[in-house]
Every structure is written in structure tokens, then in C-alpha cells.
Design a protein around this nucleic acid. Structure first.
Lengths: 209, 209
DNA sequence: TAGATTGTTAATCGATTAACAATC
DNA sequence: TAGATTGTTAATCGATTAACAATC
């Protein structure tokens, strides 16, 4: 198989398609066209077909796509046919919000460990997970074969946490701290920047007049 | 002035540049080159100059950019020379995390009102803001001349909340609910999808072998 | 067979990068 | 003047859209 580069925008849309298909499937609909998917998620039908074509031929000409099949295919493409063990670092307000967020578990992301530096917090339970001291991160994350780390600590502590996560053989990191992090190229890193999203909005609102 | 379209990627980078310049300024550095900025934030120098060139000539050939000046220019471009009144809807875990998030206030986003449906929560204080019943949203948000709404409610309630925000003359909405929202074209809408970020990671990790 | 819709190629659009004249 | 670095144009790269042959 030739590995041609897949645009990241395609991956993001695939995630959206699969969620839409979950909805459609729940309504008992068997078959769906690229046009219907496109309408449902707000893109063009050509875009839907192009995105899917990177990975194979999932439809039937003249008919469309089988909803259940396509959904399963996309989940497999995204790596969601298995559960993922996630380690959450930082049990502040944001960390606690993320730890109780239902959306993660629904897609197979299981938070198996939570770490914090605050001795007050260490030992307390969040759902069925006990908050552990950050010193135990490497040991515990390795034990759980954790592949994803979520960084929800202050910017000043983020690089140190990331270094520990890498020592624990984590493969991917989702970072909420507002700081540019250094990771080796084989580690997947994504930054969620809550403030920058607001600033794109203010730019657009300000530019409107 | 000709209004040529500015890539959204440019706006996002401007936000990053301005934060980096804040750091650099704090160190007492007076002048900076596009190469230094580029290194600091991980893009190419040409990219930095191109991004800035959309908005004017801020540098001096042979010298570089004045750090304080450039920072101020970018903040003005982003609409951040004034504070913004923000209304937060949904005081669950995520909402509370956002309401206490320091990063917002630092960039001039002031949460002036918080709404929730839960009678248990209504009346309690978050910092110096009292949680109000969602029925008062339109009235209160109008009174505060709120221009930005943050939606941190369950997906099932999000469209209704958005409709209320629009009635309150909000200009921009940051949505954390996992649902496709309908808004009129003059309303700026951005979606923050926490799960899709994890799924881009799992795709990349899964594709690595 | 006629109608519908996919998968795919070619055309278009947009963003990034490279190169360099302008100029401090 | 020589060296440095901007602002800008042209070249490249990449992603989206349009069009249509293949085919159910």
C-alpha cells in the first residue's frame, strides 16, 4: 500500500463523519449518500468522497454507503477499534473537568491514572481513580501501558511533566498548557489553546466593521 | 485599504507571536528579528514576515521589529486593545474550569455573567460572579453588553442556549458542546472539540506502524 | 434500460516557501 | 560602505472543488 500523506483536515472530518453516522445509525437508517453526510456535517459531497477515498472504497455506486459499515471503517481508521489508556496530569479545575468528561469514555478513551503535586489532592478519588503524586507518574503509567498523556498543569510545569510522560513511554500527548513544548519527533503532540480560539473570534468581530 | 482575505492560520499565529513577544519583552529585549520570532514559536521567518505584511509594515529593514511596538500592533489587530465582556453558559465541571481559568482575564476576556439551569447552583458565587438562572440570560447579557458567549452545556441543550445568546445580541460564540450548531452568518462561531483532538493523535499513533 | 451515486482525475483555489530588491 | 533584515513577488506545494466515467 502506498502511504500518501493524509491532510490533517481529513482526519478531523472523518471524526465528525463517524459521530454523525452514529446519530444516523441510531435512527435506524441503513444507507446514506455522500450528499446526505455532507449536508449533515456542513461540507461538500465531493469532500466526503475524497476523504474516504484515501482509505479505500467503502460505498456502492448508484446506492451510497452502508451506515453501520462505514461507521465501523472510519472508527478503525482513526484507531478507535480498541480502547486507549489515558493518563491525566494535573487535577486542577481543568483537569477535574476533563476527568469527568463523558465524551472521552464514549469514544474509548479511559483515564486510568491521575497525577497532581498538591498533597491535599493526592489520595482523593475522582470517580474510581485515585489521584497520585506526580513522582509516581513514570512507574504507574508504564504499568498501565498508558499510550496517551493529557497535560493540564500550569505552563511553568508543563515541560517537566511532558518529559516524565515520555519516560513512561507514552506515545501521544494532548497539551492544554500555554507553552511551546519540546518533544522528540516520534511523539505525537497536539496543543489545545483555549485563549487563541477566543482571539480568532475577536479578530473576526473587530474586522467586521 | 483593500480587504484581502486573511488566512485563519495567520490569525492563530499572530496570537502566538504576541504571546511570545510578551515573554521576550519581559526579558527586557528591545528589538527582535523575524528569524528570532520564528525560532521562538516554531515557524519559518518568511511566514512571520508574510503574516505581518497582511496588516502593514511594522519593522525596519536591516534592524528588525521593536518588541513592544510589534506586540501592541498585533494586540490591536486581534481586537485585544479593549476588554471583552464574556457570558458563560453552563456551570458544570467544564464551565467552572473555564470560569476560573486565568488565561482568559490575562488577555482581556472578562467573564461578566454565568448561567445554569440547576437550582442548586443558581445563587452561588464563582469568584465575584453569581450564577444566574438561564431564563435571565437575554436580559443580563444585554445589560452587560456582552459580545461573546461560551457554551459549556450538554449537546442536547446547546442549540437552545445559542438561540438565547443571539437574542441577547452576542456577536461571537465559543462552543464546547459536541453538536453542529446553526447560527446566522453574521455570528462568529468556533467549536472546541476535545475528543477530536485525541482522535487525531490516535490516528497518527496507529498509522505509525 | 434509466437514474443515481460512487471513485477518481483534472482544474482551481489558497497557503507556504524561496528568493531578492529595497533600505536601514 | 558593508552587513543585516525587511517587505514583496514569484515559485512551489497542498488541499478543495468540479466534472465525469464507471457501475450499481
Amino acid at each position: 500500500m502506498k502511504t500518501l500523506k493524509i491532510p490533517e483536515a481529513t482526519i478531523i472530518r472523518l471524526s465528525v463523519y463517524s459521530r454523525y453516522l452514529t446519530e444516523v445509525d441510531r435512527k435506524g437508517i441503513i444507507t446514506i449518500s455522500s450528499r446526505d453526510i455532507a449536508e449533515g456535517v456542513g461540507v461538500s459531497p465531493a469532500q466526503v468522497r475524497k476523504d474516504l477515498a484515501y482509505f479505500g472504497e467503502f460505498g456502492t455506486r448508484g446506492v451510497g454507503y452502508n451506515v453501520k459499515d462505514l461507521r465501523q471503517h472510519i472508527l478503525r481508521i482513526l484507531g478507535l477499534s480498541v480502547d486507549w489508556s489515558v493518563s491525566l496530569v494535573g487535577a486542577g479545575n481543568l483537569g477535574l473537568a476533563l476527568s469527568t468528561y463523558k465524551g472521552f469514555r464514549k469514544r474509548g478513551f479511559i483515564i486510568t491514572s491521575i497525577f497532581d503535586t498538591d498533597p491535599q489532592k493526592v489520595g482523593t478519588m475522582v470517580g474510581d481513580v485515585e489521584i497520585m503524586p506526580i513522582e509516581r507518574l513514570v512507574e504507574v503509567a508504564k504499568q498501565n501501558r498508558t499510550q496517551i498523556g493529557i497535560v493540564a498543569v500550569p505552563a511553568s510545569a508543563a515541560q517537566e511533566v511532558v518529559d516524565q510522560l515520555i519516560k513512561a513511554d507514552v506515545k501521544a500527548i494532548l497539551n492544554f498548557a500555554q507553552v511551546v513544548l519540546n518533544v522528540p519527533p516520534e511523539i505525537e503532540l497536539r496543543n489545545v489553546d483555549l485563549v487563541v480560539n477566543l482571539e480568532v473570534l475577536t479578530f473576526n468581530v473587530s474586522a467586521q466593521r
